[in-house]
Design a protein around this nucleic acid. Structure first.
Length: 710
DNA sequence: ACACCTCGAGTTCT
DNA sequence: CTCGAGGTGT
């Protein structure tokens, strides 16, 4: 039913995920094809104007690429619809009139793109076919920087002009601004050729981007959405003095028109030449022997994506041998000897369907965005948190908006902001709901905080939340008591508060669907076992504000028993080292509450352990030490490792600081902890060395001397 | 007053 | 894992 599908060409939807936003629709008639082509042209035109002339992109790059691809595909299948001058037949857009036009003697072409391994292989196969049996030779791999392509012209060693790419043949003169880029010499050395046009990417380092946005926000303006956008804005400043403050950077990767430049045999030699002239060339360019080397390079840098101080969105692969490049030639748009492999996008636009509020287990009301599913950063995202009311207001995102979605450094998707140009005129700012969506009681703004919460103690969500927390690992750790079962028992009216766990009707559970003798017996055993948990776990399980696992243990060891804690006044609690007035007050108030007293009384009656931790039998050989664990160990769970340390008098906090005695590294460790430990020169132990430490209380000496790295 | 460390809480998808 | 806030030490 899709008559013109070329073999080997994948429909865009399979690549872009289920969003379908820019995916081609199945088209039956010529009229529909023609209509879609017109639609695509006008969309691309509109985005071009916004992007190139107003520095305000209305669409994320990969989506734009998708539109252009779809148009190109339709035009190639229906040549009768193609027009020479229309959208999609140019590399960029019309140059703005604010900067004088500059024509490129050697045109600045864009590159064909490959979105997955298959497309990359397809490119290579086409190269092989064209070469008709001749050797391809080595390939060069370079990072594809997320910046703006610029051509910088040097005559007799002097920088004379710099121009943007524009439409590939004609760009804009941005000399005044490019002159402010510290990376670029105004004058080349004595070996400079009589003419050289250096092509490369103007970009903004992530650190400069952060500094810039800090400043922009400080003067009350909206921050730039991303470094590329900020670089574009900076490069097109009318006042070069402003550009100078932006700290733009540059990487050279190609030459345009030249005269007096030596003949090279390969691309990598030309890069070396550029570097020898004192021009900035990225250090990560590599020459590899085959496509296996290319795959390896891509994989390596896919993983390093967030480890560099600049953004890159792909890898550029070029045939290294210049004679072979010449043999391959170029199409009207792009050279055949190069291809840009695009990494999965980190930023995409999608539609914000609605904003909902979820009530967390503690009653906090968190707004989150329901999104039209969109493939970003390697996964399909359909929801993203908006954190709190202030965030929603600050970003002013509204249901129905087209929004930019990002999956930054870590994992958590984030709504960057709305695309204002696409906003429906009638839309109104979103209002935070006044009532809890679960229990319908009024929501209250938490004092002095950005949070809003449901304060109804008998809200079903919170009853469940408190019980889930009580039975969780780290608290009373009752096996077989997961979220779904808690939900089941609470809904059935069997559990109202945590003390009910020790008295509720297990015979009634036996009658429930999905439960038999065995599962009830296991549950009974697990509950019985939990009575013996240390007091610190119990205190943590009660979910007293500001009392987590650490402070729970701290209170338990300081008071020795629940009874002692119950009879302590606020000052006695505040006297503990590490507990200040706020935590003391919170604990005291919670324990004074009659309802909570009653729960504690029932737990006492149920025979739950109320006495402090049995003194560790082990000698406190790690006293005063702070041992941080990262990654998975073979012989210990993370909790076990922390317990092993604290049993011996040491501490095991969650992060590395200057005070840390040693870092224990297991399988797949967290990069930030590791690099911090290296920075501070903290000893790094493997599991075997950790075991030794636990036995001897001495940090094993390193066999090799730790040297400072420059 | 400031800097640094620590703790607690919330977060998505496979 | 990261953010915001509490606690401690300078």
């Amino acid at each position: 039913m899709v008559p013109h599908w070329k073999p080997g060409w994948k429909p865009i939807e399979s690549r872009m995920g289920p969003s379908g936003q820019y995916a081609p629709q199945a088209m039956a008639s010529m009229d529909e094809v023609s209509a879609r082509v017109d639609e695509l042209r006008s969309l691309i035109d509109r985005h071009d104007v916004a992007y190139f002339e107003q520095d305000a992109p209305t669409i994320a790059d990969p989506d734009y690429d998708g539109l252009v691809r779809e148009l190109a595909e339709l035009e190639s299948r229906h040549p009768e619809l193609a027009v020479d001058t229309g959208a999609g037949h140019r590399v960029g857009a019309r140059p703005s009139e604010a900067f004088a036009p500059v024509s490129h003697a050697v045109s600045m072409m864009s590159l064909d793109k490959a979105f997955d391994q298959d497309e990359l292989t397809g490119w290579y196969d086409r190269v092989l076919r064209r070469l008709d049996g001749n050797e391809v030779g080595p390939l060069t791999c370079e990072l594809k920087f997320d910046g703006l392509a610029v051509s910088v012209r040097y005559e007799n060693g002097e920088m004379v002009r710099a121009a943007t790419r524009g439409d590939g043949r004609t760009g804009e003169d941005v000399s005044a601004n490019v002159e402010t880029i510290a990376d670029l010499p105004k004058r080349l050395g004595p070996d400079a050729p009589s003419l050289i046009e250096v092509r490369g990417e103007v970009y903004l380092k992530l650190s400069s981007f952060a500094a810039l946005n800090e400043m922009v926000v400080a003067i009350g303006q909206a921050p730039y959405v991303n470094p590329r956008n900020a670089a574009a804005g900076s490069l097109r400043q009318k006042n070069a003095a402003v550009t100078a403050t932006r700290n733009l950077s540059f990487f050279s990767y190609q030459m345009g028109e030249v005269d007096g430049v030596p003949q090279f045999g390969s691309h990598h030699e030309s890069l070396q030449y550029l570097a020898s002239l004192g021009l900035p060339v990225n250090e990560h360019a590599e020459t590899v022997a085959s496509m296996d080397g290319v795959s390896d390079y891509i994989e390596r840098f896919r993983l390093m994506r967030h480890d560099l101080d600049y953004e890159f969105d792909g890898v550029v692969i070029k045939i290294d041998d210049l004679a072979t490049q010449g043999r391959l030639g170029a199409t009207s748009r792009a050279p055949r000897w190069a291809v840009a492999y695009k990494l999965p996008p980190e930023e995409r636009t999608t539609k914000l369907l609605d904003i909902h509020v979820s009530i967390g287990p503690s009653g906090r009301a968190t707004p989150f965005a329901r999104l039209e599913p969109v493939f970003v950063g390697g996964v399909t995202v359909s929801t993203a948190t908006l954190h709190n009311e202030d965030q929603v207001l600050a970003k002013d995102v509204r249901p129905g908006d087209t929004v930019v979605v990002r999956r930054a450094g870590d994992v958590i998707p984030e709504v960057v902001g709305p695309v204002l140009a696409d906003r429906v005129k009638a839309s109104k700012p979103w209002k935070f709901p006044t009532n809890c969506p679960i229990c319908d009681q009024p929501l209250e703004r938490v004092e002095d905080m950005a949070a809003t919460a449901c304060v109804n103690v008998s809200c079903p969500r919170q009853i469940r939340g408190r019980i889930e927390h009580f039975v969780s690992r780290g608290a009373m750790d009752i096996e077989g008591f997961g979220e779904s079962r808690v939900d089941l028992f609470v809904t059935a009216g069997l559990l109202g508060d945590v003390s009910d766990i020790y008295s509720f009707d297990l015979e009634a559970v036996r009658e429930m669907e999905g439960f038999g003798d065995l599962s009830v017996q296991n549950l009974r055993l697990a509950i019985a076992e939990s009575r013996a948990r240390p007091l610190g776990n119990l205190l943590f399980g009660l979910r007293i504000p500001h009392v987590g696992s650490t402070n729970g243990d701290l209170l338990a060891t300081s008071f020795g028993s629940m009874e002692a804690l119950l009879s302590a006044d606020e000052e006695a609690i505040a006297a503990i080292d590490g507990v200040g007035p706020i935590i003391a007050r919170s604990v005291f108030l919670w324990l004074s509450n009659p309802g909570n007293r009653e729960i504690i009384g029932r737990l006492r009656d149920a025979g739950v352990n109320f006495t402090g931790p049995a003194r560790s039998e082990l000698a406190p050989i790690l006293e005063g030490m702070s041992i941080v664990v990262t990654g998975a160990l073979e012989g210990f769970s993370r909790d076990d490792a922390a317990a092993a340390v604290s049993d011996r008098g040491g501490k095991s906090p969650g992060s590395v600081s200057k005070k840390t005695t040693a870092l224990v590294v297991g399988e797949s460790p967290g990069a930030s902890k590791l690099s911090k430990a290296e920075d501070f020169g903290i000893p790094i132990l493997d599991e075997a060395e950790f075991s030794t430490l636990l036995k001897t209380g001495v940090v094993p000496a390193k066999t090799e001397e730790e040297g400072e790295t420059p």
